[in-house]
């Protein structure tokens, strides 16, 4: 199946393999996306749908624009052309209050947590709450404590500063902050990078559990083949400025040198992706 009907003939197209859960509403809908840095084109006629309740992994070689795509969706980078719709709203048309409303419906976990270094973990979690929610001082404390417990941090982490935490704890704290407003949509930028295999697996489990319990839609940039295997429902591969989306089984059959190398290479075998 090919999406993005306006693509001119002969150019590589974004492709959807297998059966997407298109009976559910699309949370993110990208059409005809084109992004450029100076003369360098990053995405060209890119099309992608992320449906409600799925965990989508975003992979691709270095410099193929995974993080750029993530940043375009959350509005940190402006596209040259094309539309990005999140919850049915075109992000390019939103300003002021409507943009803030949309921003309160997604949470973003940046690579190393991106916690505010001058605030404690609890205060970090309270930042979006103070900005968007209407809570009393007692509730602020309690919600922060609840989120800290939900991401598996010890209670005494609440009053620690980010510099006093280990890398894995910082990621968990970042996740707690991303979940502060119970957003239905969660973006994760390389959530397991820099964690040891045990920590990475635990983080995967945490994301999966939260996703199930809270009914989240998750879009995660990752290089971790184990995470792709363990928690992603579908995977989007950035190839030649466009994207190929499908469940892992379908991508394993997909004929493209990079995709073959990626999933069937030594690391792919080590992650026992072939066994899927």
């Amino acid at each position: 199946m090919i999406v993005g009907a306006t693509t001119p003939e002969g150019e590589p197209k974004s492709m959807v393999l297998g059966n997407p859960p298109s009976d559910r509403p699309a949370v993110i809908r990208i059409r005809n996306l084109k992004t450029k840095f100076g003369p360098k084109e990053i995405h060209h006629h890119l099309a992608l749908d992320v449906f409600k309740g799925e965990v989508m992994g975003l992979v691709g070689g270095s410099g193929t624009g995974k993080s750029v795509l993530l940043r375009v969706i959350i509005g940190l980078i402006r596209q040259k052309k094309g539309t990005v719709e999140v919850f049915g709203q075109n992000t390019a048309n939103l300003h002021g209050a409507s943009l803030r409303k949309l921003q309160s419906r997604w949470g973003v976990l940046f690579q190393d947590g991106a916690l505010f270094s001058s605030l404690t973990v609890a205060e970090n979690i309270q930042v979006p709450l103070r900005e968007h929610a209407r809570l009393t001082a007692r509730q602020l404390e309690e919600v922060a404590a609840l989120k800290i417990a939900m991401v598996g941090l010890p209670p005494d982490a609440a009053h620690k500063y980010p510099s006093e935490l280990s890398g894995g704890m910082r990621k968990r704290a970042g996740l707690a902050r991303a979940l502060a407003l119970d957003p239905p949509l969660l973006f994760l930028d390389e959530p397991t990078a820099g964690l040891d295999p045990i920590g990475a697996a635990a983080f995967d489990d945490l994301v999966r559990d939260l996703q199930r319990n809270l009914g989240l839609t998750v879009l995660m940039v990752t290089h971790d083949l184990d995470s792709l295997n363990a928690i992603c429902d579908r995977i989007a591969v950035l190839l030649d400025k466009r994207v190929v989306v499908g469940p892992l089984e379908e991508l394993l059959k997909f004929e493209h040198p990079w995709v073959r190398e990626y999933f069937h290479g030594p690391r792919g075998r080590a992650a026992r992706i072939d066994a899927v």
Binding site: E141, E142, A145, L146, A149, M150, D156, A158, N213
Partner: peptide, 20 residues
């Protein structure tokens, strides 16, 4: 169902915030 799941999740956590 979905509410019950959330309540269970919240009930499991220790709710008393750590005092400074």
């Amino acid at each position: 169902d979905n509410h019950a799941r959330l309540i269970e999740l919240a009930g499991k956590q220790k709710l008393r915030p750590e005092k400074k």
